[in-house]
Design a protein around this nucleic acid. Structure first.
Lengths: 232, 232
DNA sequence: AAAAAAGTTGACCATATGGTCAGAATTTGA
DNA sequence: TCAAATTCTGACCATATGGTCAACTTTTTT
């Protein structure tokens, strides 16, 4: 799917790829421990990075949350940065997948509505991933600079073309495509990144299913009507 | 304006308030050095906190950027947290001011347009402040939790009322007010917080005056039309 | 079953960092 | 001008943190 960002990873790494997927080897036995532990570490790291930022995260805390001794964590990932890269790498696939499904032949109203819904639900289901990504970009994208300028850039160019064609066909207003995408990204990811604020402002409680539903409705409505998308 | 967040600040603090403003004492002589140095430190701290996050910022770097020895920084601010609080405190006034100017008697189209423009220009002129704020919220608002649940919450409630009244008068559609505000905040602050991404995607260069202008146009257009705001 | 490979871990280390302090220098007020 | 108040600063310290390592255990392969 997305190009790997990974560089160094472990000392005795056999670099056999991501164990999962590939061929028919029903239940990959070899590297099972490896896969399980790496997954645990990455999951634990996600929590810590999301809550404390890159610098604030400590390998010790990651180890504790993963239920492993620190030295064991370093057996799988030689440096903190390697853990971080693995986490980020994990996030990227998640990020572009829903984006991919928009094509020229789709119905704008439906495609945009689905995209917005998917993004909001991603904020609901993977808030940590969203926050880590946000943090990375805010810091100036030290790790993702390359990705932003290549992969993401191309995706945006492609999808901008789609939006332009829709406008040409008279299916919607000619809105500046990249900026429209920014608006959608920002307003949907807001529910993950600024969850603390949304919670405090709305009702002091965790966001409910209903909150997310209202978010979807509101954003969809404003965007579709705002871009003059023909419905029906 | 906004309630002070500050707690501890310095060792020999005479706690005379913020030197500026207050009464007529033309050119406050006493505390001049103090004011100047504190301002320098806060300004330097803004850069460092914005780029590295709270944990990643070091007092040493803040000192260097402020052009002062580290010990001197600690003369004015006893702890790193105290510096951070001062920085955040500084940002809050900036944040709510443009928000305040929206009242029931305003013309919705004009008021919203001005608000959106002001917020985008704030992203342009004070990107560091925006990033620090974003970082604070992403981390779960350890310092601002109280502010979010009181001041901000009230502001949102008030402005939501304004939006509702506008809808009642038939000046716009009845859009869920809080969520609409979220959409505006998110999409305008995006240009500061995700500047690295916007740069990479748009043209690999620093955002230009034109980019910000296009952002204003696009957001304003989508929001106004999307909420069915009557123009004229 | 024995050798090889992979995984585990406590103890350890160098460095970075937030913060202290005592004494020197400067500014202020009378 | 002189004492009090304020500001300045190099040297110092305790702690936290990323990372290493050598010995040990478990799993896999032959």
């Amino acid at each position: 799917m997305t190009e790997d960002i990974r560089r160094d990873e472990a000392p005795g790494e056999t670099h056999s790829g991501d164990s999962t997927a590939t061929s028919g080897r029903s239940s990959g036995k070899t590297g099972q421990i490896r896969a399980r532990n790496k997954a645990r570490i990455i999951s634990a790291a996600e929590e810590v990075f999301a809550a404390k930022g890159y610098a604030g995260a400590t390998t010790a805390e990651i180890a504790t949350r993963a239920g492993l001794p620190k030295a064991n964590v370093h057996y799988y990932f030689s440096t903190k940065e390697a853990i971080y890269r693995a986490v980020i790498d994990n996030i990227l696939d998640l990020w572009l997948e829903p984006f991919q499904r928009i094509t020229e032949d789709d119905d704008p109203a439906e495609a945009l509505a689905i995209y917005i819904r998917t993004k909001v639900m991603l904020s609901r289901d993977k808030p940590l991933a969203s926050r880590i990504y946000a943090n990375e970009i805010i810091r100036g994208a030290p790790i993702l600079a390359d990705y932003l300028g290549t992969d993401l850039r191309e995706w945006v160019a492609e999808k901008s073309e789609v939006l332009r064609k829709w406008a040409d066909k008279g299916l919607m207003d000619p809105v500046e495509p990249a900026h429209l995408l920014f608006l959608i990204w920002a307003s949907t990811q807001h529910y993950a990144d600024f969850q603390a604020q949304a919670k405090a402002v709305l009702h002091h409680r965790d966001l409910t299913e209903e909150d997310f539903e209202t978010a979807v409705q509101t954003i969809t409505r404003v965007v579709l009507k705002g871009c003059g998308v023909k419905t029906g």
